[in-house]
């Protein structure tokens, strides 16, 4: 890979820059008043963005009778909601199910969505536009209308109440395909052509040359797919039968019943189930930077 990118890197890129000069192009080093003001405004805006979440956390520390209290700090904060939710022996099982499902689906999406996105972006072949629109059109049907056919399909193939049954509808998404297609557009064709001359086959060109250049988009895709599967509710509910196969959202929905919803428990469950997505976000958001430095340096 290094050979290829070194060689093809030359025509498009200026002399190698150090990471400092790369950043210098974006943000002047000396902090001036404008910079400080910008930071402050962004920070205040960020605080406003998380204010409702602060209320959610606060609710998770409250007793049922004070959940409608406007005070952000509860009168007598306590952790009993957390103990209640976590003491349910099955919560860990649901957690594990959700993690396994979200991880496998994410890997699958990263592979196939970028493969299809790349093909639709960089290859010229008859039917290209039709395939793109056809895939895009799958975004235009609400999931609610698909669950019944999926259920019948799962029943016919014996997929009910299994990981595969929960996962199969989301293994490839039009969202990811479209996202990756757009980001491959910023990969110059010259690179691919140079690699072709180097004797790499098309699969190698995609995997070794093009993919490293779209790492920021791959990172964003990973975050979104993981999140989407982590919060999926309707389909996992329909396809699972046994409590042991539930995912976290399905399990947590037990806190609401016919007439009543225990909001302090919902808030607690929401706070707990945000943690894994936060970790995934923190892991992958680094690539949104690093990928760029690489792209900036090497091409």
């Amino acid at each position: 890979m290094s050979i290829v990118s070194e060689r093809v890197g030359n025509p498009a890129t200026p002399p190698k820059a150090t990471s400092d000069t790369v950043f210098a192009g974006r943000a002047p080093k000396q902090a001036n008043m404008g910079q400080i003001l910008r930071w402050l405004i962004l920070f205040l805006g960020g605080l406003l963005m998380v204010a409702p979440i602060a209320y959610m956390i606060s609710t998770s520390l409250k007793w049922p009778h004070e959940i409608y209290n406007v005070k952000l700090i509860p009168d007598e904060p306590h952790l009993e909601n957390y103990t209640y939710v976590l003491e349910d022996g099955r919560f860990y099982l649901w957690f594990l199910n959700s993690i396994i499902i979200a991880l496998i689906t994410t890997v699958c999406n990263l592979f196939f969505d970028s493969l299809v996105g790349y093909t639709l972006c960089k290859f010229r072949f008859p039917g290209r536009y039709i395939v793109f629109i056809a895939i895009l059109s799958t975004l235009m049907i609400p999931t609610e209308m698909l669950v019944i056919p999926w259920y019948m399909m799962s029943q016919a193939f014996g997929w009910l109440d299994s990981y595969w049954g929960i996962m199969f509808p989301g293994l490839m998404t039009a969202f990811g395909t479209f996202l990756m297609k757009q980001f491959f557009e910023s990969v110059p064709d010259d690179f691919l052509e140079a690699a072709r001359i180097d004797g790499l086959n098309e699969f190698q060109i995609w995997w070794k040359v093009a993919m490293p250049l779209v790492k920021p988009a791959l990172a964003a895709l990973a975050i979104f797919v993981f999140l989407g599967n982590w919060t999926a509710f309707l389909w996992p509910l329909i396809v699972t039968n046994s409590v042991e196969m539930y995912t976290v959202p399905v399990g947590l929905s037990s806190f609401g019943d016919e007439v009543d919803v225990a909001w302090e428990l919902i808030a607690t469950g929401a706070a707990i189930s945000t943690l894994p997505t936060l970790i995934v976000f923190l892991i992958f958001q680094r690539f949104i930077i690093r990928g760029v430095v690489m792209a900036g340096l090497k091409g």
Partner: peptide, 15 residues
């Protein structure tokens, strides 16, 4: 800062 702006997207829509 980026996390602050992204947090709402991660949090349960129901809650």
């Amino acid at each position: 800062l980026r996390m602050l702006y992204f947090l709402p997207f991660m949090t349960s829509a129901v809650a």
